[in-house]
Design a binder for these strands. Sequence first.
DNA 1: GGGTTGTGCACAATCGGTTGCGCTACTAGT
DNA 2: ACTAGTAGCGCAACCGATTGTGCACAACCC
Lengths: 337, 337
Amino acid sequence: MARLKDVAQLAQVSVSVASRVLNNDEGARINADTRKRVFEAAEQLAYVPDHRARALRLARAGAIALVVPEVNNAIFANLHAGVQEICHESSTAVFVAQLDPPEDDSRSLARIIGNGRVDGVILQRSEQYSDEALRRAIQLDIPVVLFNSTLEGHVGSVAMDDAGSVNVALEHLRGLGHTDIAFIAGAAQHDAAARRLVAFRELLGASGAPVRDEWIVPAGWEAPAGAEAMRSLLELPERPTAVLVASVNASIGALSAALAAGVRVPEELSIVTIHDTWQAEYVTPSITTVAMPMHAAGQWAASMVLDHLSGSPLRDEVITSPAPRLVVRSSTSAPRR
Amino acid sequence: MARLKDVAQLAQVSVSVASRVLNNDEGARINADTRKRVFEAAEQLAYVPDHRARALRLARAGAIALVVPEVNNAIFANLHAGVQEICHESSTAVFVAQLDPPEDDSRSLARIIGNGRVDGVILQRSEQYSDEALRRAIQLDIPVVLFNSTLEGHVGSVAMDDAGSVNVALEHLRGLGHTDIAFIAGAAQHDAAARRLVAFRELLGASGAPVRDEWIVPAGWEAPAGAEAMRSLLELPERPTAVLVASVNASIGALSAALAAGVRVPEELSIVTIHDTWQAEYVTPSITTVAMPMHAAGQWAASMVLDHLSGSPLRDEVITSPAPRLVVRSSTSAPRR
DNA sequence: GGGTTGTGCACAATCGGTTGCGCTACTAGT
DNA sequence: ACTAGTAGCGCAACCGATTGTGCACAACCC
């Protein structure tokens, strides 16, 4: 691999001149002819600057990390696309890393990220991290933007409009005539799940519909948890006519369990969920969802990190635009009286 | 962030001694007491070596890239886990990067990977890369191991036992009594898809069952393509009693299309597919699959890259162990006569 | 012509580590 | 007591880039 030295030699100049030419250093006074020779030499040798040396000298890695608990997560793809898009504009590489459950070692994130490997981190919190563990994990000297969660005392986060999404779902169900509405909640420790739960209670109550504790079932983000929650819901003496599931993968599990129990969806039970993924469209019946602006959120998060590197302060943002959008499919209908 | 110099100062030694101690340099003769002081100083300052400097000096980035066409791909999670596992053992970071469709620029991969950013690459080929484009893209000076695909003239690949997986699926269908079997193939350009298609033709023919060209429908890896293929299959005057779908996401699309057309699965049509993911379990009816050893394949690929960095040659491997494993669910049954 | 200004380039320090080699003491052998 | 050997540590070069500064020379002024 050609180094800058080789380029300089071929162009008959010093490395410093070669460097200035290739970086389009405005302040430098360089003869047009010399400039041309350097460009040609670089072209001829297919010169690509060494990122290690560059990073060392500039104290800038030119990359950020997107740390997620689970790469196969449904919402991850859109998030990633948004992040990638912004970073591409500033030639910043995006590295995805998976942060496994907290270890005894409090410096786990530092080990993954390394020191100087990336300039910033976007972190999607795992259900399994307590506030304390998370706080320890993000003790880095680079900016950390929390995605879809907040942490007391930490500035730098991008969250979704959880209350708004719950509202869209409930409005849809209410418009169909439902009042007996259950909620399959997310993991209790997760603050996004907590916000949705609070919103559900408040908004449902405000609409005058009954808020019944036994119809609020804690679960998790994934399909097995959703299935389990649905089964326990169906064992109750009185059943709701509709269920709002806090997350799409869980709703797929919930639907599966309902069908397995012989419940007809949507005739006997309507199901609506938050987040939209292709799977929701391809199960039968397809699931009505509230599409969240994951892509935009990814863009926001990436911008926040990159801007911070240029001096802007970190902030705590809630993405309200584009607003949560209802995607009506076949899992919801008017209740059968 | 503390540097090695700070550690050395605190321990009252030179940086070279500090370096040797912290790297457990066997050859170095260092007093036990000095050693202890250095360790304590490093601990006290929470010293983490700067990866940029280390990488520059050692000409080793301590990281490899896992490049995939689509991070949300069903098989990606297992692959990633396998890679991660091996790399963790040798303290190598794993970076996931998404390689978008080929651009005019032939150095696209080089741009993503950078120069010196990683020591090796595991690349899952996109359907959209022609042999030529792929060949240009992997012109790097670091080892590239192709995952689940091969490239003429390129050594370094890990492929799955495609013929074996098709065989397991067909054996299952034959055991149930099916002879009228269709095939929803993968993308024609993709060589893994091509291998499965060849295997299907040969193995089905060898079993004495009819191999009908109109029952072999080219599609793609994802759900919409599978749905489209199923629709065209259902329009034929004569229908098969079973369908083998080349990939799990496509099979979910295919199932969805079949149910939408009023076809009862598995009574009127059995569906079996290759690769196992949680979605296959949670659609209704759940889909019978052939689980492939993605995790092991990821381990192989990672080992191959890491070993190569220690001098071992690259090879072309086919993962036959663990063997493709049938996971019987509810989408297959004996044909209704 | 002497002085000033400006152009075009190279030198060398620097980023934070790693490592070959040399230097100093101290021990041991004769 | 003199030499040889070795333990323990530091010096300094180096990896490949960036950048402040200095130097040589030409062009210009009055």
